[in-house]
Amino acid sequence: MQTSVVNGVLVVHLEGELDHHAVETIRNDIEDQLAKNHCRGLVLSFRGIDFMDSSGLGLILGRYRSVTGRNGKMALCAVSPPLRRIFELSGILKVVSMHETEESAVRAVKEA
């Protein structure tokens, strides 16, 4: 997992397979990075994700709660069609916006 801070927004580049086994470490890493960089905004990029099950939804909802709990915003980007289907099925896009590119996701979090 690689992270960068763009205009005060933490951008997380998720990699590999997002299942129950993987999410526990990723969750802690994201929370650590949010605290360390004093970021209120969060963008999750799914470009490097080959597989995701409902554990990924739990990860997003959990970060959504922690980010909005600190009056921050959050967005998703670079979502492949199989992942998009799981997002649509879950209704998660009603609370978290989805963008084609990292740039537009960062802009959306910044402007919100």
Binding site: G58, G62, L89, S90
Partner: peptide, 22 residues
């Protein structure tokens, strides 16, 4: 039921069975 989970503290989404059925 979609969104039902017995383990919210583990950040489970409650979508597992809904995904299987779909």
């Amino acid at each position: 039921q979609p969104m039902f989970t017995s383990r919210p503290e583990l950040e489970r989404s409650g979508m597992g069975i809904t995904i299987m059925e779909n």
